[in-house]
């Protein structure tokens, strides 16, 4: 619709929009995160919700303790192999539409603890991640930027066609297999449908 016509109509008190915009506007302004802090990044996440860098003004009003009521999982901190099955299980319990922000270097790729025997080298080995935030720990402003990037991603999703979000595509899975504890590590070590090996991506 023509933007000038929209503005003209709104001056008369008539608000014109499409279903898509309305749907996405409602979704993006009420993303409720799950209380899921693992390590040091969790403290920066808590600081972001405190009085100085208020995250509630972006719609993340309440942090829900139960995954059944949350839309967003902010994986903040190092995911260890001992914790990884619980993370995937929590992700499976969240209802669609659900999003994941990987906060901090540890959640993206293992971070400074990459050499560890108990460290999972990035949570995107098992679950799909929407926004990655680098930093160790990222500043609260960076987390707000990531939140805004997620909101832009949501508002760019369309209701029909190829770029519709995952929860409207019936054939895509919304639950991912939970890894088991093996004798030397996790089995399987990664979920090949979700994990894209950066080296292979670079090699084309």
């Amino acid at each position: 619709m023509d933007q000038d016509l929209k503005t003209e109509l709104s001056k008369h008190g008539i608000f014109a929009t499409s279903f898509e915009e309305l749907y996405n506007w409602g979704r993006k302004n009420s993303v409720w995160p799950l209380t899921f802090g693992l390590a040091c990044c969790a403290i920066e996440m808590i600081a972001t919700t405190m009085a100085r860098y208020d995250l509630a003004r972006f719609g993340a009003e309440v942090f829900r303790p139960s995954p059944r009521q949350a839309d967003l999982m902010i994986v903040s901190g190092t995911v260890t192999k001992k914790m990884a099955p619980q993370v995937v299980r929590l992700y499976n319990q969240m209802p669609e539409p659900k999003y994941v922000i990987a906060m901090g270097a540890c959640a993206i790729s293992g971070g400074p603890f990459r050499d560890g025997y108990n460290v999972l080298k990035g949570i995107d080995r098992f679950i799909p991640v929407d926004v990655h935030i680098p930093g160790c720990p990222p500043r609260p402003e960076a987390l707000i930027h990531a939140f805004m990037a997620l909101q832009e991603k949501i508002s760019a999703q369309q209701l029909t066609g190829e770029s519709r979000p995952r929860h409207l595509k019936q054939e895509l899975p919304s639950e991912f297999p939970v890894p088991e504890f093996g004798e030397h590590g996790l089995e399987p070590a990664q979920n090949d449908e979700v994990f894209r090996n950066p080296l292979k991506v670079l090699q084309g």
């Binding site: 001992k82 025997y117 504890f181 093996g182 004798e183 030397h184």
Partner: peptide, 11 residues
Amino acid sequence: ILMWEGFTDYP
């Protein structure tokens, strides 16, 4: 205590 039951190595 730190690794899971079933882990067989001594890291």
